[in-house]
Design a protein around this nucleic acid. Structure first.
Lengths: 131, 131
DNA sequence: CTTGACCTTCCCATGATGGGAAGGTATATG
DNA sequence: CATATACCTTCCCATCATGGGAAGGTCAAG
């Protein structure tokens, strides 16, 4: 199976597949006589795994860890859970940060009449209270 | 006032100040005889404005727009509000995306016992249901 | 005059991609 | 067999906003 077919079958673009190989997230594919990368079902499994982990927001290096655990029959589920919960913490922190931006902006926007006149509490806030 | 002083006074690092100048977000600073950038209070106002806007998550190009509105005495508050609300929409979309990752991961983690055995619904989910 | 704290420009790196050029290959059709 | 076109390869550049650091110039104090 060529890279284009593997891309279609896995949902991971050919560009990404080459990138993942380059950074060592996946093993270098075997090559055909002409130098084309060749993939098998096992490779597809890994690519789909990566795609789904990316969809859940894991970083490449977290996925590297998860792939190693996935392949390790002697893993403990505790290790997997730890990675996942650390990621959940990151996500929550990010959400809180974004939410507080939203809260501030919503408040300011509510107090901005949105009419043709220039006065706007949003700009006042950004300008800061410089006496 | 040299760039280091301006950085301290505005809360924007010297590196960032140079970057903002380079990309045209702020005007090129006047230079001293030796070629040092020189800043005044007006420049500090703009830098603080930028810092606060960044803290609210606005992109550089949105800030460019906001700065132009800020300086335009004939602006309408509607234009400012529009930029802010568009950004709020972006933030909300991002939050929803992250929240759905959290929801999925929390559910999986709850169902993972976190003990020494390898079985883990998190990995099962990532692996996908390939019969 | 030297020291140290500034400043300058320039290049490189981040993370995870996408775009695209230049050139080789595989396959189907005329 | 020639050609078209649909692949593939590597390589370089761009994103976004920022930090790090090198090499070298400047300024103030001792």
């Amino acid at each position: 199976m060529n890279i284009g077919h593997a891309a279609d079958a896995s949902g991971v673009s050919a560009k990404r597949i080459r990138y993942y190989e380059q950074i060592g997230l996946i093993d270098a594919a075997t090559r055909s006589g002409a130098g084309y990368r060749v993939y098998n079902e096992r490779d597809l499994h890994a690519l789909r795994f990566i795609r789904r982990a990316r969809q859940l927001g894991f970083s490449i290096s977290q996925i590297d860890t998860l792939l190693a655990l996935w392949r390790d029959r002697k893993r403990s589920s505790a290790d997997v859970k730890k990675v996942a919960l650390a990621h959940v913490d990151d996500l929550r922190r990010k959400i809180d940060e974004l939410q507080s931006m939203v809260d501030t902006l919503e408040d300011l926007a509510t107090r901005c009449d949105g009419g043709p006149r220039p006065d706007c509490p949003i700009l006042v806030e950004l300008q800061g209270v410089e006496s």
